[in-house]
Design a protein around this nucleic acid. Structure first.
Lengths: 220, 220
DNA sequence: CAAAGAATCGAACGTATGTTTGAAACGAAC
DNA sequence: GTTCGTTTCAAACATACGTTCGATTCTTTG
């Protein structure tokens, strides 16, 4: 029994509880009980409930972002000097996140929740590593979609990250609204549907000029 | 002072607290204090914390769905016998929700949170009225996008509802990732960007045939 | 084997929560 | 002006929470 045995069990149990009941809703008593550990073990191994949560999230976030960078590298190697395929960029953004929920509860449910509960601890773990990904994705998208300006790039990246977050969080909804035709467990199926959807949205014509004109006419 | 004066103040204060701190995070003591009401007023007027939350959500959900139906009616009147414009359908789905956050905290933040905290109370208020909207939207989309099968319709509707939920919940993120270029308060601006994005996604070619083929080849 | 450090344990502490209670204040109707 | 139903109020209740403590057990090291 190594030094990190119950520590790992605590992380697993906490991840399940946090993703099912949220940060506030999950209690250390249930977590430690599910992990077959003592209540005080949380304080001993992590310091506090908040630090436990940060550890749970961090454990999942790093592999996801590494996989994203790997997919981007791979796509760039395939593309050579040409701009990346929009589909490849989108897939690099979303697939690692969705797939991370395959073997257990999804990270994004926790993060999304805690994002508006207690912003500070979550953002420390999530936002930091995310900066690099975003910069890299933006650069690739800028080349692949030269018709978009920076503002539109921001919007569309925001939409993309948004849909993956909500799709990962509300998997049960998909099963409900499709009368069972869509299987939320079939992550590859979801990805196969989501990538073309988002890529088409990304390729949509710029709306800037049209909007400025209509705003001007509305003002007068 | 009519019978529903402090009742209304309680709803307002509760809405603010619920959307900022979540269902578990919001305390009745802070809510009643902000509403300048007594702690017991919640039990008296609503029965319990959960019933208060349901009342808060219900108050916002109904106008949103009425506005959605109104926009659909209006679009159908304009289209006559022809299929609706995809843009009009998408806008009817998303605009009322986004605009509902204009004068105060957004409903979706509460709903999205509570969706995974305690599913039962939320779904009772949200899912019920949503059925009608979804059926109507699906019918309109089916006509406007005959190249999609039912499964793909479900996926793309799910994606659409997902992006609006997350965009409404994480407005602050948009400001952050765009270096201030996008103003989350500018709801019409967000809608103007989001509608073409989603409409293009909706119009993306069907992926069913391609996917079946690739799955078959992967299996062998 | 003995000593020291790491890890676990049961139990308690202080606090905050949602809910309940019974009395007081209020408002309208007779 | 009194009465009756509605609404407000201060106070208490029971419970659940995160955290801390000292003792105990286990594991490693000399």
């Amino acid at each position: 029994m190594t030094a990190s045995d119950t520590r790992e069990r605590l992380l697993d149990a906490a991840e399940r509880q946090f993703s099912e009941r949220g940060y506030d809703g999950a209690s250390l008593r249930e977590i430690t009980q599910a992990a077959e550990a003592n209540l005080a073990a949380v304080s001993y191994h992590f310091g506090s409930k908040e630090d436990l949560f940060v550890a749970v999230v961090a454990r999942r976030v790093q592999p996801i972002n590494l996989e994203r960078l790997r997919l981007l590298d791979q796509a760039e190697a395939r593309a050579g000097e040409r701009p990346l395929e929009v589909e490849a960029i989108v897939e690099a953004m979303i697939a690692p996140v969705l797939r991370s929920g395959a073997d257990g509860p999804c990270v994004l449910r926790m993060v999304g929740r805690a994002n508006s509960e207690s912003a500070a601890p979550t953002r420390r773990v999530v936002e930091g590593p995310m900066r690099e990904i975003r910069a890299r994705v933006r650069r690739a998208l800028r080349r692949a979609l030269p018709h978009l300006n920076e503002r539109e790039l921001s919007y569309r990246m925001h939409f993309t990250m948004g849909v993956v977050k909500s799709v990962a969080s509300d998997q049960h909804l998909l099963h409900a609204i499709s009368d069972g035709q869509c299987d939320p467990q079939d992550l590859d199926g979801t990805i196969a549907q989501l990538v073309p959807f988002l890529a088409a949205g990304m390729r949509a014509p710029s709306v800037e000029r049209k909007r400025r004109a209509s705003a001007r006419s509305r003002r007068s």
